[in-house]
Amino acid sequence: MRVYVEVALRGFRRHATYRSAAVAGAFTNTMFGFIRAYVLIALWQARPQLGGYDVVDAVTFAFLTQTLIAPVAVFGAPLELGERVRTGDVAMDLQRPADFQGWWLAADLGRALFALGFRGVVPLAAGALAFRLDLPTEPHVWLAFAVSTLLAVVVSFALRYLVALSAFWLLDDRGVHAIAGIAAMFFSGLLLPLVAFPGWLGAFARALPWAAIIQVPADVFLGEHTGAGLAGALGFQAAWAVILLALGRLVTAAAAGKVVVHGG
């Protein structure tokens, strides 16, 4: 277990090295928060109570989701794993006396922690200064939000891990990464809250794993789920995390059998 904690710490430190990049990213996330907030305000002025949100919820959603973008890496760079498959460095990773998937998960959790703590807080803080936001007042909501965010990062990692492994077959994972990025942006609720998706499209989008990345943690934060509903929301995230991680393990086993190390 200690090795994974160490890997996570290294992941944290590695990203902490690029502070000006984090500042630049926080600035951009914040600006997008403002633009999206105004678009949602215009929509909720035309349709108050749309999807069970009021206008304060909608504005909170705009800034909170900008906060979550970096930790869950919706637009983020692909996992370095894909690049290492292309260059062949992955052969070295497969030799390590640690679980392959666990190693990459630990590194990604370290990255996400830095992204949330040092970059993610900026959009939400800026939004809270400029607008009235619906911030949770009860400690247990913050706790539930922390658990939900952790699960969101794990689901997002499991998806990006599968994307990176596609490089074993395609040699270049950038195309799959681009497609996966689109699906993530649209179905996570980042483009428009899933509560504003009409009818069957909304129901469909809310059953997909991408909902677990943005929409579910945002709803937990806004206090949309209580009691059994809250347990159900976290269970939904956990279920996708388990399914996708298990799928990742199967694909890892298949991929490891494919590796040919050219000596020389």
Partner: peptide, 21 residues
């Protein structure tokens, strides 16, 4: 990288279409 090229072409056409969606 042909597969990547085709997928990226489709992806870019679709992703730019998402704003209009």
């Amino acid at each position: 990288y042909r597969t990547s090229f085709v997928l990226l072409t489709v992806a870019t056409a679709v992703v730019t279409g998402l704003d209009i969606v």
